[in-house]
């Protein structure tokens, strides 16, 4: 319950935070991934740079072509946001499944994806959403396509000294028809399998389709073969079943005491099917 000692620095702006970051420091956002790890001394840090007081990165802005979600936006504020409710309803649906009320009040989307827990919900959703991650560093700002963001087990494209300031959710036909289905580990509330799916539909047939899966593999991923197989095909049980065979191709499936590799793969199929059928 007691972290190892560290220096605490509160940043009042993103620029100030960037100036405080060194190679031995970590960024404190909502703290709901980092503080639990520090408390159990599973992780330690020399300096913690607190960005939780920077209002500029907490907002959710409804723009013409996208909704920009501040990196410091809490899960609760995302769940309650009306712009996202129409632009990407899976966002609210996923936000509601994260942790619990208290966690959602404090935990942030930027903190969650920077941590990149392989069972976290946002990675699946953002992959499906074709989001862009807005990252600031001392040299300026860069945007990373979400498909390039999650690079491995708790690994991302975020470099040392960088801060996620926003996530852009494009306003597209597929995002406005989107769902999130989650099978929870009942103790941790993390996903054993979480599936985000979105598709622009022509009747029962998707013109476009993106699927993000979390919990199954060492990082969240898109089952590209499944997407390809189903674009332009009616979303019915038979077609979906036929497409799901290779859902775990190319990924290393995780296993733990609660769900084996075999069962997790099975669940991914069941939950992907459930998500896809809801798009119709």
């Amino acid at each position: 319950m007691i972290p190892l000692s560290f220096n605490y620095k509160k940043a009042n702006s993103v620029d100030e935070a960037l100036s405080m970051l060194t190679e031995d420091s970590k960024v404190l956002g909502g703290g709901h991934s980092l503080i639990p790890a520090l408390k159990l001394r599973l992780n330690s840090v020399e300096t913690l740079v607190d960005i939780s007081k920077i209002d500029a990165i907490k907002g959710i802005n409804d723009n013409e072509k996208s909704v920009t979600v501040g990196g410091g936006a809490t899960h609760a504020s995302i769940a309650a946001n009306s712009a996202l409710a129409s632009a990407a309803p899976m966002m609210a649906e996923a936000a509601h499944t994260i942790g619990d009320i208290q966690v959602r009040n404090m935990g942030t989307i930027g903190g969650s994806i920077a941590h990149a827990d392989p069972a976290a919900d946002w990675p699946a959703v953002l992959l499906a959403a074709d989001a862009n991650v807005v990252i600031k560093n001392k040299d300026g700002q860069r945007e990373v396509d979400i498909d390039q963001f999650f690079t491995g087990f708790y690994e991302t494209a975020l470099a040392e000294g960088e801060i996620i300031t926003a996530i852009r959710i494009p306003k597209t036909g597929f995002n406005s028809n989107s769902v999130y289905e989650k099978f929870k580990q009942p103790a941790s509330r993390f996903a054993i399998v979480g599936v985000a799916a979105c598709g622009e539909m022509d009747g029962k047939t998707p013109k476009s389709l993106r699927i993000g899966i979390t919990g199954l593999a060492e990082r969240a991923f898109r089952p590209m073969e499944v997407e390809k197989a189903l674009i332009g095909k009616e979303l019915n049980e038979a077609n979906i079943d036929a497409a799901l065979g290779n859902i775990a191709d190319g990924v290393s499936v995780m296993a733990d005491h609660y769900a084996s590799e075999k069962y997790r793969t099975h669940l991914a199929k069941v939950y992907t099917k459930r998500a896809l059928l809801r798009l119709v």
């Binding site: 319950m1 605490y8 509160k10 404190l28 703290g31 709901h32 503080i35 639990p36 408390k39 159990l40 913690l48 607190d50 939780s52 007081k53 609760a76 619990d100 009320i101 208290q102 966690v103 009040n105 404090m106 103790a187 941790s188």
Partner: peptide, 25 residues
């Protein structure tokens, strides 16, 4: 592990697990 909620307080009006917030925050 920030799981049980026995430490829940309101921080600026929102239910928060006070075991998962630094005092300095």
């Amino acid at each position: 592990t920030s799981s049980c909620g026995a430490c829940t307080i309101h921080l600026n009006g929102a239910a928060t697990k006070s075991c998962t917030v630094l005092a300095v925050q």
